[in-house]
Simulated assay, not measured.
Amino acid sequence: MTIRNKTLSHAVALAMTALCSTGAFAATDLSGFWELKHDSKKVGKAELTAEGKRLAEANRPKVEDGMIMTYASRWCHPLGTPFIMGDSAPLDLIQSKRELAITAEVQSSARHIYLDGRSHPDMGAFDPTTNGHSIGRWDGNALVVDTVGFNDRGNPMVPGGGVRGEGTHLLERYELIENGARLKVTFTWTDPKIFVKPHTYSFTYYKAAPETYALEYFCDSSDPERAKTAEEPPQLSGKE
């Protein structure tokens, strides 16, 4: 091999490495509809700080007082992450070289996980959202997603305990298992204000049938029937 060819081969190798590191050359396609089933959630109890316990209690629907929905659900506000990741309806994952988009049936904006090598924006100038700002990188066949920039709106409750807020950091790992029939996502939440130590759990999603399609979730906050079912406890007839 000539020196020129060696140089060319080295340049190609460097270019391929750059493509992989920025996510422009993805090793795995996660696209499709994915749904949770009865055995999907592996969630332990989070260790919370005193402030974490206070905030979790403040956001908990007071069922005993007749409040059976969160404020965001009642008024049809975007629910955000992590709520949409645990919804019973299938999630639609749409992947391109630039990003992985995750859309849910319930009311929420889509999650945009950028795979093009960008970094997080300056958090001092970023407007926090219910989904935060997510960037991803490939670790072999696994997608590692880093999310910051959350607010405390929507449904901020974290499975296992605690809530997300502006100081919360979420790290996720997406891995196809069972020959692509299932998608395992491991979530790790870090926030010294909320959690005594990082809180980790996993969900396993099943690949939905090829004919699965997106449905529309209609939420009308002015509907008097919605207000009634959202805010009034079940009434017993006295015969039960």
Rank of each mutant, 00 (worst) to 15 (best):
V144N: 07
A142P: 00
R54C: 05
R173L: 01
T168D: 00
L176G: 07
V12F: 13
E240V: 09
P128F: 02
T186F: 05
L19F: 14
A27V: 07
G140P: 03
L8F: 15
T2I: 09
C76R: 01
K62H: 10
I135W: 01
I94S: 15
M16G: 08
K239W: 12
W34M: 04
A125S: 15
T200L: 04
V196H: 06
P210D: 06
K193W: 13
T204S: 09
V63K: 04
S96Q: 04
N131M: 01
I3N: 15
N179A: 13
T22E: 08
E35V: 14
K239R: 11
T212G: 12
F33H: 12
R74K: 06
G124M: 11
V148L: 09
H120E: 08
L93Y: 02
D191L: 05
H169E: 09
G180Q: 06
C76L: 00
H112M: 11
T204K: 07
P234I: 05
I177V: 14
P156D: 01
T147E: 04
S73T: 00
H38G: 05
E232I: 02
K53A: 08
V196Y: 02
L30T: 05
D191G: 03
K53R: 12
S73H: 00
T103S: 14
Y206K: 10
S108F: 05
G238Q: 03
T212S: 13
A227N: 03
Q107D: 15
G44W: 12
T103G: 11
G132Q: 00
R182F: 08
A142V: 03
G149P: 12
E57Y: 12
L170Q: 11
G23R: 11
M67G: 01
K41H: 10
S96G: 08
K197I: 09
A15W: 11
K239E: 13
A125E: 13
